[in-house]
Write a protein that binds this DNA or RNA. Structure first.
Lengths: 210, 210
DNA sequence: GTCTATACTGTGATAGAC
DNA sequence: GTCTATCACAGTATAGAC
């Protein structure tokens, strides 16, 4: 058995190559745009011949697919870190969730295009890759419900509002904060309409006693 | 001079060919997706050889450019028709503008992608083609100002809200009305926050007398 | 001026030797 | 698993017939 790498070692190495390919794909995407990456450039950055990529991914779209899953998993752990503990005050909580999502999206145009827009012509994520995305959305919906928002229409409007501001920010003021500045105000507007309490839970409890 | 077509005839014919090419491009875009049209398919639909397209357009992006201008011009005349006369009641007016834009966008995915998203990799409209778009936006801003909304931030939020609902409708419920149904409610929410009068101008005038 | 014929470059993808 | 060789197809360019 000496000199024969174990199954684990082989799997590790293989996983390492996949990582290198994906890292190269991300760096290319940020450099030339998500839609403009080429297998040749990725291969060159990794240090192999273009067809060799096919030993690790079935197609270019399979690379996009892995990147898609990766992006949503990254957001999932980012939000887990940033939104725990969730502020007790519903207004503050809803603002915070919106802000975390907004900033994550705006921080990386290529990633946002992949996660939230259908900007790659033939690409659609597989069910596996899509799973984290629906998990995040469902988690957000549950959080909003826990704040007393029962009408699903309110959740849909909340999502649309945040997404709309993100798109405008990236399209019409990239690198700036023209729309980012408006997020709190817009969410507050929504919270007023949806009936999110303006005061803290403690104040709500105190008021209820009267 | 007999048998020699006049300058006008030639220009007309030339313009006719341009129209045929653009029509073919639109029909292809709706069939296979905006980003997936090819010069070969366009040429075949028009009945000429692919390189002949270059007698009429400098490049594929020049075709996109003409389509872009055309789409915004189409919206400009659509909105002129649908929004004249603009309802006197500010709430009704703001709802109507939003609805006209929403329906125009949702009616044609390819057109919306071209007008409002940066979905074509290398394409950016020229200043000429962009002009109708800024005209429409400025016209919308002026309309909103005329309704008493003086803070530009309110206009930005209004635009983001409509755009966000359009994107969600097209991405998550194409052909349906899940988000279309929410437009009135969302705009009303915005109008409340922006201070658009709830009652008619006549009622406002009457109230002011007290 | 316009169209045809042909070719060039770059793309994703495949086959088979090692 | 990686390589070399090659394919099919895209957008693009140009030379030359009409």
């Amino acid at each position: 058995m000496l000199g024969t790498p174990s199954r684990n070692r082989i799997a590790e190495r293989r996983e390492g190559v996949r990582r290198e390919i994906l890292d190269a794909a991300w760096s290319q995407a940020r450099e030339v745009g998500l839609a403009n990456i080429t297998l040749r450039d990725i291969a060159r950055e990794v240090g192999m011949q273009p067809p060799s990529l096919y030993s690790h991914f079935d197609s270019k779209n399979a690379i996009y697919n892995a990147m898609y899953a990766e992006a949503w998993l990254a957001y999932e752990s980012c939000s887990a870190a940033e939104l725990d503990p969730l502020p007790e005050h519903p207004r503050v909580a809803i603002q915070r969730i919106a802000r975390v999502f907004f900033d994550f999206a705006v921080a990386d145009l290529a990633r946002h295009q992949l996660m939230n827009q259908r900007t790659i012509p033939g690409f659609e994520p597989t069910a596996d890759a899509y799973a984290p995305a629906v998990r995040v959305l469902e988690h957000g919906a549950a959080l909003v419900r826990s704040l007393g928002i029962t009408d699903p229409a309110d959740f849909d409007i909340w999502v649309s509002l945040i997404g709309g501001l993100i798109d405008q920010q990236l399209a019409n003021d990239p690198g700036g904060d023209r729309f980012s500045r408006l997020l709190e105000r817009a969410i507050d507007m929504w919270a007023d309409a949806a009936g999110v309490p303006k005061h803290s839970p403690a104040a709500t409890r105190a008021a209820r006693k009267n």
